[in-house]
Amino acid sequence: MRTLSFNRDGTTLTAELREGSGQPVVVVPGVMSDAYTWRPVADALNLTNPILVINRRGRLPSGPTGRGYSVRTEIDDLHYILDTLQEDVHLFGWSYGGLIALETATERRNLRSVIAYEPVSSPFGSNALEPLRLALGKGDLDGAVEVVKRVMAGYSAEYMAALRADPIWPVLRPLVHPLADELTAINDHVAALSSYSEITAPVTLMLGERNEGKPPYGVAFTAFSQALPQAEVVRLANQGHLAHSEAPGLLAEHLTQAVLKHNQSQHSN
């Protein structure tokens, strides 16, 4: 992997690149994740394509979210990176990254395919905002991560105890810094669902089987799937929202299949 840097209006945006040939696969992580946490998936992709995993704002070595941060900021950042690449790409987004990818896809005409794993939209995690801001205001990163996992995602005390002992815990702590800004942005944003049926690139929606029909991720997924009647829906057996960390090989296998299906396509949207 090597790091690429982009400068948009004075803000540094970075990405990790796995070299390859052909159309790049661009990965947009969601909240509480970055290029580092997605390395197991990127490494497991059975593709010759270049793999570019973005470090969105708020994730070092990228710059901060900044004043006036919104979902529009993320969309414009992604447009900037894709314009700089000057290639047709396969675009994959997870969670908040899925929302960013789909919103961007309504405005682009050079995507080979669009893949989204459990995209989220408003209302999302608003009940976690107050305790999250309180913990961050005290500099209590452990407490902030606890809020995210217990209040927002609904994990049990037993799960949290195991997570605190896991080597991933110190990785999660700095990733909580931009979360209040991100949750505010998601809840302030009105997704362009009425335009999703006009996305002309092939669309794949991925869902963890354990989340189907359940709040918050399965309920949000239903709204996206209804707005995308043209999408192929892929369910990952025995998975929830965190397939990238709990089953990276399985997620990489499904992502590989989705990309290969359209890798040699002459589709130009």
Rank of each mutant, 00 (worst) to 15 (best):
M1N: 12
T3I: 10
L4C: 07
L4Q: 03
S5L: 13
N7Q: 14
N7I: 12
T11R: 13
T12I: 13
T14G: 02
T14N: 08
E16P: 03
E16G: 11
R18W: 07
S21N: 11
V26L: 06
A35I: 06
Y36W: 11
Y36N: 11
Y36E: 12
W38Y: 11
R39K: 00
A44I: 00
L45D: 05
L45F: 02
L47N: 00
L47D: 01
L52F: 05
I54G: 04
R59M: 07
L60W: 13
L60E: 14
P61F: 03
P61M: 09
G63W: 05
T65G: 04
T65A: 07
Y69V: 11
S70L: 10
E74K: 11
D77A: 06
Y80I: 09
L82Q: 04
D83P: 11
T84K: 04
L85Y: 09
L85N: 08
Q86P: 05
D88W: 10
V89E: 07
L91I: 04
G93W: 06
S95L: 02
I100L: 09
A101Y: 00
A101F: 06
A101G: 05
L102E: 02
E103Q: 07
A105S: 13
A105P: 13
A105R: 11
E107H: 12
S113E: 04
V114S: 00
I115S: 14
Y117Q: 03
S122T: 12
N127R: 13
A128P: 08
A128V: 01
E130K: 14
E130P: 02
E130M: 12
K138R: 14
G139H: 02
D140Y: 10
D142M: 00
A144H: 01
V145W: 00
K149A: 12
K149F: 15
R150V: 10
V151P: 00
A153P: 01
A153Q: 12
G154K: 06
A157M: 02
A157T: 10
A162D: 08
A162P: 06
A162S: 12
R164P: 08
A165W: 06
P167M: 01
P170S: 09
L175C: 09
L175D: 06
V176D: 05
H177R: 13
H177I: 15
L179E: 15
A180G: 11
D181I: 03
N187I: 01
N187R: 01
V190P: 08
A191Q: 09
A191H: 10
A192F: 10
S194D: 15
S195D: 14
Y196A: 08
S197R: 14
S197C: 03
S197I: 11
P202T: 02
T204D: 05
M206K: 05
L207W: 05
L207R: 08
G208P: 02
E209N: 05
E209Q: 11
E209D: 08
N211D: 14
E212A: 14
E212S: 14
G213M: 00
P216H: 03
V219Q: 04
A220T: 01
F221M: 04
A223G: 12
S225N: 07
Q226R: 15
Q230F: 00
A231D: 10
V233Q: 05
R235E: 12
L242E: 14
S245V: 14
S245I: 14
A247S: 10
A247K: 01
P248H: 09
E253N: 10
E253Q: 13
H254V: 08
H254E: 08
L255Q: 00
V259D: 04
N263T: 10
N263M: 01
Q264N: 15
S265W: 02
S265R: 08
S268E: 13
N269T: 13
